[in-house]
Design a protein around this nucleic acid. Structure first.
Lengths: 350, 350
DNA sequence: CTGAAAGCGCTTACAG
DNA sequence: CTGAAAGCGCTTACAG
């Protein structure tokens, strides 16, 4: 392979320690010497060796903090599985994880949990950020402390972070619209959209993507209305039940956020589950155990998965690579919007 | 973390070299000493450290041979990208790759190319095996030489190999059937199936999965016939064109192997592209540039992707981990059967 | 059969 | 500011 630090030291006529100082921007080195070392390194096309670096770094192993508002949200089980798998695969490289979770979306609590992690001495953070000024301020502070942060699953507008790993919400809505386009097979259908909250950027982006899909390639599909579920199954159940009793009743439903199971229950209890004339087709999001069950039983028509395992796995991988190498992660690492139906539920990666 | 080899040596009262001999089944060690070392190691819960091992092994880096009948088959471009990415990510760990490709399915040539790789000194092999006695014999020989082999994309019945990374063909056909179930939305549809060859196990499994999907959940869909394309676009074009002129004409087509682009061309030229009444819906496999184009233009309804990038990536990962650790790969590592339509073509991992 | 040494490519105290 | 040394956890010749 390439040249080693030893070789650079020999060529420059300095010690390996000095080469290390020059290459890694450490303090206490004569600028002239540094320049000379850097010049030789460039000439030789020096690239630090990851294996050597990992072993050398073992005295101060990388502890990654993770904070997510995931309690009571099965989606994050998948993210967690991915985080854990990635950490396990790198345990021998000195990687470990400290996890804090909470229920709901209280920014004060999120700040507190992140501070707890900092007190524990984490050197990098993966965060599912709440959209709130306090979180923006926190990110600003972490940036100044040079603590690398990755946002996961949800990004935060204007937040300082190294990168984002998660869903492209617009594409997610597009995919849902696409499935309904196929289902309609050229016929008109009245669609009710249930979103989580109009105040959630991601939710709105999904609805927007859905609209665009219909407009551009399925003009026969008309949106009856867009209602909020507050990510709550009970509310989703209530609103959809009411809609099914009204005239004209929806012939299809797109649940753009939480409440998929509640909506499925409403459809099932109204005796209109399934596809075909007189039935109410329903497209959801994510693949929790409850959603999986509705898919298998033929109540839920399809769901758009956002690869939670992959989100967790990549977050760890990117933070570790950055730690070792200084490799900068892409600004946005987007997971694929998987179309999942009963028939491709099994098999394949999580 | 855990104990090191140094600690085991100290506790057993032998040198590190001897511990290494015991732990790694090397020759030249007193059985009694070996037993003692092993006992201590077990007591201490010793697990070798991957970082140390990788650096220690740098003197004889891992060269992985890859042979695939991929020329003229765009699908394998994705596999290759995955292979290359995984090798690049491990280049600092001493991993490199030697690749041999060929056009068509000549077992004699496959054997020769593998022998070339062996002559180059490869220490592991990823192979897209042709189903042929010569290949079985080759695998037997490699097994005796203790050369780890992974079959990729296609498995070979009765072949000795460490594991398989690739598609679950039955599930792939199931997924295709599921998409057509949605498209039919409860109505009857006449479906023509175009397969590659009745002599290809994978192709037959796909057709079987497709049949099962229809039988179990879409009884209204009837299979008009199953015809062979020999994986050739010209033949697929010819056979489908003829079928579209017959009565009753198919209302949907499932192309279970090669020939997707040819079939799309037939549909387009007959002026029946698209979905809806009077149109011929078509489900294909894989996501080559040509297929992607037909999806975008609305000729191809959907395609079932088998994650070629992932197949290549995982093959390298598993062979490397086995080399370092002795970790045995799963017998079958199955990729997900992705449902790809125009609306979820973009974004996400390759 | 066994041990002591050198080395993989880096980092980190410790002297000076 | 700089160098020499020790160390990360392993493997591999080389003596004996």
């Amino acid at each position: 392979m390439g040249v080693s630090i030893k070789e650079i030291a020999r060529l420059t006529g300095v010690s390996r320690g000095t080469v290390d100082r020059a290459l890694n921007d450490r303090a206490g080195i004569d600028p002239a010497v540094k320049e000379k070392v850097l010049k030789v390194a460039t000439e030789q096309g020096y690239r630090s060796n990851k294996a050597g670096r990992i072993l050398g770094l073992r005295k101060k192993p990388l502890r990654i903090g993770v904070q997510m508002p995931s309690e009571g949200n099965d989606f994050f089980l998948g993210v967690r599985a991915g985080l854990e798998r990635a950490v396990a695969a790198r345990a021998d490289f000195g990687v470990s994880m400290a996890l804090r979770t909470m229920k709901g979306f209280d920014p004060t609590l999120q700040v507190r949990q992140v501070r707890d992690l900092l007190a524990e001495g984490i050197q990098a953070l993966a965060l599912v950020p709440i959209s709130h000024p306090d979180i923006l301020a926190l990110l600003e502070e972490l940036h100044e402390r040079h603590l690398p942060v990755l946002t996961v699953n949800t990004d935060i507008v204007g937040g300082k972070r190294l990168g984002y790993v998660g869903t492209d919400y617009l594409s997610s809505g597009l995919a849902a619209g696409g499935v309904l386009r196929l289902l309609a097979d050229g016929r008109p259908l009245r669609v009710l959209v249930l979103t989580g909250s109009f105040r959630m950027l991601g939710h709105n982006q999904r609805v927007e993507g859905f609209r665009r899909a219909l407009e551009s390639s399925a003009p026969g599909l008309s949106i009856l209305g867009v209602e909020e579920t507050e990510d709550d199954d009970g509310i989703a159940y209530g609103k959809l039940s009411a809609a099914l009793d009204r005239t004209p009743a929806p012939e299809a439903v797109y649940v753009a956020a939480g409440g998929v199971a509640g909506a499925c229950r409403a459809i099932e209890e109204h005796g209109v589950a399934g596809i075909g004339p007189g039935r109410v087709r329903i497209i959801g999001n994510d693949l929790t155990p409850a959603i999986r069950d509705y898919l298998e039983r033929g109540v839920l028509t399809a769901t758009i998965g956002q690869q939670p395992f992959e989100q967790g796995y990549q977050a760890i991988r990117l933070l570790f690579d950055h730690h070792v190498d200084g490799t900068l992660p892409p600004d946005r690492t987007l997971t694929h919007n998987e179309i999942v139906i009963a028939e491709n539920l099994k098999g394949g990666t999580p």
